[in-house]
């Protein structure tokens, strides 16, 4: 569903130097699978996800969603992908219902179909009590759920989330991950980037660890973690080994 092949993204910094943000990353996420993209700050996670979300053009390699290439046909990718970025906010002066409605219209939904879709999202995300309150007055957890709902309004088969729990407390993070697990079980392909490993250790089917713009480890939890260890130790080991190289 989500396929990244030999992805390279270089850009020039303000001082003119070339930054190799992503330097040959490859991985795939199948339908009904949740994959964790792990890496420290500056590892290249956000850049990879932005290329997938058609917000950045790759320097080389490809990123595709449901067979559509992000560079060649960005509009087709956007119709098949839901994207929640690390810095995603919600418009303060609109209510969750209005936010879902406006993005539904952008995706060609209208009338009863749109109203039905908005009602389902409000119910499924537990936003019933605040669906008609301006988003500026919602809690961080509620706002993040609105953000996820906005990405789901067109029912995309693939979902990409960049640090979705970073602004949430423990309960908010658990609720959100419950929602994502439900979506995975319903057949969505989900790619989640995070550096809060303990939250997703038992939730994701597979993990891809990137460091310095390259994949340094990939596999299921059991493949990455040795007997008696945990994901955090495995992550540090992979990153340290890559650093030593």
């Amino acid at each position: 569903m989500i396929v990244v092949r030999d992805l390279v993204k270089h850009y020039r910094a303000g001082d003119g130097s070339v930054v190799r943000a992503v330097d040959g990353v490859s991985f795939a996420v199948e339908p009904g699978e949740m994959v964790g993209l792990l890496g420290a700050n500056g590892a290249g996670k956000t850049t990879t996800l932005r290329v997938l979300a058609t917000l950045l053009a790759p320097t080389a390699g490809t990123a595709s969603v449901a067979g559509c290439d992000a560079s060649a046909d960005p509009v087709a990718v956007r119709r098949r992908l839901g994207y929640v970025s690390a810095t995603t906010g919600v418009p303060d002066r609109l209510t969750p219902r209005e936010i879902f409605g406006s993005f539904g219209r952008l995706h060609g939904l209208d009338g009863a179909a749109l109203a039905d879709r908005v009602d389902r999202l409000v119910a499924a995300l537990g936003l019933g009590a605040c669906a008609d309150r301006p988003a500026g007055r919602l809690s961080s957890g509620q706002r993040q759920r609105v953000s996820v709902g906005r990405a789901l309004v067109h029912d995309p088969p693939a979902l990409v989330l960049d640090e979705p729990t970073s602004a949430l407390d423990v309960i908010g993070a658990r609720d959100l991950l419950d929602i994502l697990t439900g979506l995975r079980d319903a057949g969505h392909a989900i790619l989640v980037s995070t550096h809060r490993l303990h939250e997703i250790e038992r939730r994701c089917d597979r993990f891809v660890v990137i460091h310095g713009g390259r994949v340094v480890a990939a596999g299921t939890r059991d493949e990455l973690v040795g007997p008696g260890g945990d994901l955090e130790q495995a992550f540090f080991a992979a990153v340290s080994a890559a650093g030593a190289r």
Partner: peptide
């Protein structure tokens, strides 16, 4: 500033 521009640029249009 509000962090909503990326969601808009993800809209299926030019």
């Amino acid at each position: 500033e509000r962090g909503t521009i990326e969601t808009l640029l993800m809209a299926p249009c030019s």
